[in-house]
Structures are given as C-alpha cells and as structure tokens.
Design a protein around this nucleic acid. Sequence first.
DNA 1: TTGACAATAAAACAAATGTTTGATACAAAC
DNA 2: GTTTGTATCAAACATTTGTTTTATTGTCAA
Lengths: 221, 221
Amino acid sequence: MPSTDTTETARERILDTAESLFAQRGFDGVTVRQITSAARCNLAAVNYHFGNKKSLYLEVFRSRWVPRAKRLQAHFRANLADQASMRPDAAAVARSLAHTFLAGPMTDEERQRHHQLMSREMGRPTEAFQMVAEDVIRPFFKELAELLRPALPKTVDQEGLSLNLLSILALVLYFNFAREAVTRITGRKYDKAFKDRLVDHIVTFVRNGLGCERMQGEEVT
Amino acid sequence: MPSTDTTETARERILDTAESLFAQRGFDGVTVRQITSAARCNLAAVNYHFGNKKSLYLEVFRSRWVPRAKRLQAHFRANLADQASMRPDAAAVARSLAHTFLAGPMTDEERQRHHQLMSREMGRPTEAFQMVAEDVIRPFFKELAELLRPALPKTVDQEGLSLNLLSILALVLYFNFAREAVTRITGRKYDKAFKDRLVDHIVTFVRNGLGCERMQGEEVT
DNA sequence: TTGACAATAAAACAAATGTTTGATACAAAC
DNA sequence: GTTTGTATCAAACATTTGTTTTATTGTCAA
C-alpha cells in the first residue's frame, strides 16, 4: 500500500493509490470509487484533478513510471561503470542489468508495482505503452545494443542480441508479475535467498545466450 | 476469432467466443453482452447455460484449457520418446518442451489464446488457477523433474531445475502474451522465421541452464 | 471586508452491466 | 393431441460505474 499521509496532497495520494491498484488489478479491474476511497478523498477528485479515469491512468505512467524507469537506467550505467571501467564485456552488462532490475534502487513493493504495470501494458498495449516504448524502452534497447556490439563474438547477430535482451525483460517482468503464482507452484517465497538466486539465474542465462547461442538446429517434427 | 458456425450449439459457441475474448482482454475487460453478441445468441444464454459470468469463465478452463494442456503433455511425451528412445538427456527434454509449447499440435491462434489465459491467471490467480495448478501444472512439473534428475550433473540442485522449468514457462508465456508489444518494440512480426528462432533460443537457454548454471556469484552493490 | 480562486464535498445523472423474468418455439415422449 | 422439457428471445430489473453539477470551505490578494 502506498503511503497515504494527509501531508501529501490529494492529487499525489490519488496517483500513488491508483498506481498500486492499477498494477494489482489492471485498468478495468479498478473503479474510481475504490481509488478515491483508498486515497481518502472525494469521488469527484479524480475528475477534478485528472479529467477522467483514463487520463489518470496515463498520468500514473507520466509522473510515476517513466521517472522511475529513468532512475533505473541511471543506476544501470553507474553500476556498469563501477565494475567495468572501460570496455565492458557481455557478462558485466548482463550482471548490471540483472542487478538493476532485480535488486536496484527500489523497495521490493515498488519494483513489483513497476513491473506489473509494464507487464499489463505489454499484454495489451494502450497509449501508455506507446509513450513508454518511444521515450524509454526503445532508446534503452539501442543503448544496450551499441554497448554490447563490440563485446560480442561475431557469431552473434543482431537478432540474437535482441532475443536475449527481450528475454531478460521477459524474465524480470514475469518473475515479478507472477509472484503469487510462482509461490503457489514452487512453494517458494520471494525472500532474499530466492531473489538472489533469480539474479544468478538470469545473469547466467544472458551470458550464455549472448556468447554462444547457436546449437545444432531444431527440426523435430 | 473462433469458428461461430450455426452447426455448433450455442453453448459451444459461447465457450469458444468467451475463451477468445477472456484471453484478449481479461475477465473484467469483457462484458456478457460482448460475448453473447459475438457468439450470435441471446444475452440470457450465458446465465441459462452457465449460471453466471464467473462460472462461464471457470468452465472455459475446465472444458477448453485443461483438455488442451493434457493434449500438449501427451505431445511432449510422444515427441520425447521419438527422439530419445531410452534415457533422454537434458537437451532432448529441452528440445521436446520447446517444440511442444511453441510449435506443437495447435494453430497459432489457439496457442496464443492458451498462453494468454494462463498468463492472466499467473498475474492474478483465481479459482481457475487453483484447479489448473493442482490438476495439470504441478503433476507435469513433477514428471519433468523425475525425468531430468538422472540426466543432470550433480552440480544442479532441485532449485536450479525448478528455476529453469519456470523460466521456460515464463518465456513461452511471455513471448505469446506480449506479442503485440514485442512486435512494436522490435519491429519483428511473429512469422515462421521468428518463431523458429524463438524455439532455438529457448532450447539453448534451457540446455545451458540445466547443465552449467552456477557462475562466480553476484555481489555488486 | 471583499472578491477571486483552488480544493473538497454531497448529491444527482446517465449509461453500462450482470442477472432475472415471462413468453414462445420446438422437438420428443406418452 | 397433449404434455414435458429444452432452448431461445425480448424486455425489464437492480446495481454498479464514470462523470457532472452545485454548493461549501479555506486561502490569499486587493
């Protein structure tokens, strides 16, 4: 639950509450009344401050999601510069990526919210996705590609690189999006041990994937 | 779109249409009116045949999702027996898994529906997930674990195995769940070439992951 | 004090939504 | 032919939901 102090303005409380609820239940799964009552303000406040429900949803991405994504990218660059001063190798990039997304500068609840929102947008893109893809995701992908190109063996093509980056994203998003289900299936809680292990797991995957992807081909019926 | 012949009974048409719409937009994103009008039947038909909307949703899983999941498991076993007569190695299991989930006995649209439904349930489990987890997913996980145990090096523990199986599941689900977004970000359509490459990619990941997961540990701040 | 403006509140509104009702058609059984 | 049970239909019902309206409060400047 977001902090709903009375010190915050109602507008801010609505944004926090809305982000949390939209992340948990999706746009259609949340009512304006649920948002305003959880934010302890009047029903009309949403329409007063944001015009309508859909605009509130977009504003959550503009004023909450995007800034956090940029903070994450900054953390990634700092972390990478820390461990690999000049030309980073593929393993270093993978490690910084995994660390940023899975252990980076967020509380665990914030990370879950962040990735749940993105997961929902990837499942059913709206205007919010358009904005986020152009302003945040695509530039970051390009940055990573240029960072990695000189570090990769020639056997790895552009497509292989894309697939691996997408797979990191997919795993990070999914292991956050599907926490409850993963816990139910495996019986494993999202404690520090499990999350550390997840980082290891993803780092290894990306490193192997980046370095030596091709195998002998797949042609079973 | 599901086949909405008039030869099918209304009940069947409702189930097909409902599965498709629930997969695309989720339970809250679909109205009973949308379902019945797409299935070309009366509004009251849903309540007549299924009691209420929620029961219809559960029935979609019971009479559509679960049988298809069992067909997939059968396909996996047959495919594995085909390529590895006695004791399958880890790579063979990985190959059969990827092939079953990504190219197996379904049309592409059916596969997308299947995995989208599961993705939504993993993001926000309902009664349907409980049923599916107990009756289908957990037994299959156990089967895979027992199949793999003798084929794995001793360095791989139970947790590593679980993580890799979950990761296959996550990648398969995600690359189906998020097709539209993946296409928008990468500019790549889900044509045969891309899907073949995905199979390769996942097979390699799992094989590497299963065989040699541990690396030198991750302790960047 | 007065006037202007931003914020909040309660109430009302119109449309959408899940569900129920009562009538009708139709086929099979007696 | 009558009855019985299933399926379909149009219409209505009761809530829920997003949005609007109107009034009130508090604050700051003139």
